[in-house]
Amino acid sequence: MPKIIIPSQLREVTGGEANVSAQGSTVLELIENLDEQYPGIRDRLIEDGKLRMGLAAAVDNEVSSYGLKQKVSEGSTVQFIPAISGG
């Protein structure tokens, strides 16, 4: 099962748990399934059908440009980090 590292500020939803797992083949599916274990986490990550403004998903340490549609595999680790832009 893909692993998800819960951002510090969402660990209040997971009862303090930082490392969790969920089923799914895309970031969106992962979040949907995670929301069943930890109700409310979806709405903290997703707004208007997209990742919350300023947030990016990283799969296996690579920030994805596909957002919620990014594919994940069984051994993947997914993280949520601030989106960055440069000067």
């Binding site: 500020q9 969402l10 903290r44 990550l45 919350r52």
Partner: peptide, 10 residues
């Protein structure tokens, strides 16, 4: 006046 602090969705 309508701005509230956002803490990752809260």
């Amino acid at each position: 006046e309508d701005l509230h602090t956002d803490s990752l969705g809260k």
